[in-house]
Amino acid sequence: MNKQSEYISMQDYVLRVAIREAGYDEEKPVIRQIGLEVAPGQLIGLIGPNGAGKSTTIKTILGLMAHVNGEIELGGQNKRYAYVPEQPVFYEYFTLWEHLHLAASVFGMDERQFGPKAEELLERFRLTEEKHHYPTHFSKGMQQKLMLIIAFLLEPDIYIVDEPFVGLDPRATADFLRLLEGERERGAGVLMSTHVLDTAERICSGFVLINSGSVVARGSLDQVRAAAGCAEDATLFDCFHALT
């Protein structure tokens, strides 16, 4: 068994999820028996077709579902998470820089640390010239970069990332993956929902495949292949189609 795919003890996780049922209506749960754990340095891919329950799972983890029967536990040094939504969220009358400053203030980031870190991230994502402009006028890709910069600025224990590659050009995607690798080396964990299966296969430590509101396979790629009844050289794409 892949060492990174083994279940982990309480003191070693940054996220543990044990959802028995959750949904918008108490009588009509959308997801059932969703269990997953993320260890420091792990990147777990949350995979499934549209309508499978990925978004509901993420909303449940974030505490946004009205009816939940289960437990969500954050670990790590600060028990802090950063959420990167698929659809960027921002204030209409705040500049890019003001968004960063607000996020830093909310999380109590030291002002002396904030400036250099924010400037570094802006340069990395090639948004330095836009820092005093309003994201309302940005392209979707630039707005997505803002979401990523805020997340990396906060250096959380766990990143919860929903379809991060949507709208990013190849250079921004490469920058994102390099920064994410650095955060994993720091000890942060990542739960990432994505439909980009070839990239997920290359970068993820393990996978949780959801279909019809429940987990159908989880673990390393070899474990997912076994659950799907696929050959030893089957791709994640092959397993996805076999299981969903």
Score class of each variant (00 low, 15 high):
28 K>M: 09
30 V>L: 12
31 I>M: 10
33 Q>Y: 03
34 I>W: 09
36 L>E: 09
36 L>Y: 03
37 E>H: 00
38 V>E: 03
40 P>Q: 13
41 G>S: 01
43 L>I: 00
45 G>T: 06
47 I>S: 00
48 G>Y: 04
48 G>M: 03
48 G>I: 06
49 P>F: 01
50 N>G: 05
50 N>Y: 02
54 K>F: 04
56 T>Q: 00
57 T>K: 02
60 T>S: 00
60 T>Y: 04
63 G>L: 06
63 G>Y: 08
64 L>A: 12
65 M>K: 15
66 A>S: 13
66 A>P: 14
67 H>I: 00
70 G>K: 04
70 G>L: 12
71 E>F: 00
72 I>N: 02
75 G>V: 01
75 G>I: 00
77 Q>P: 03
77 Q>F: 07
79 K>N: 00
81 Y>K: 11
81 Y>T: 06
81 Y>F: 14
82 A>P: 10
82 A>S: 11
83 Y>I: 01
83 Y>N: 01
85 P>K: 01
85 P>Q: 02
85 P>F: 05
86 E>G: 10
86 E>Q: 15
88 P>G: 09
89 V>K: 10
90 F>D: 02
91 Y>F: 10
93 Y>W: 11
100 L>T: 06
104 A>M: 09
106 V>E: 10
110 D>R: 11
111 E>S: 15
112 R>G: 15
113 Q>S: 15
114 F>L: 14
114 F>I: 02
115 G>W: 11
115 G>C: 06
116 P>W: 04
116 P>R: 05
116 P>L: 06
121 L>Q: 09
122 L>F: 10
122 L>A: 07
122 L>I: 10
122 L>V: 12
125 F>M: 09
126 R>V: 12
129 E>Q: 12
130 E>K: 14
131 K>N: 07
132 H>L: 12
132 H>C: 04
132 H>W: 09
135 P>D: 03
140 K>R: 14
142 M>L: 07
144 Q>L: 06
148 L>D: 04
148 L>Q: 03
149 I>P: 11
149 I>N: 09
151 A>Y: 08
152 F>A: 02
152 F>Q: 01
154 L>M: 15
155 E>W: 08
157 D>R: 08
157 D>Y: 09
158 I>R: 08
159 Y>R: 14
162 D>S: 10
163 E>P: 11
164 P>G: 08
167 G>H: 03
167 G>D: 01
169 D>E: 11
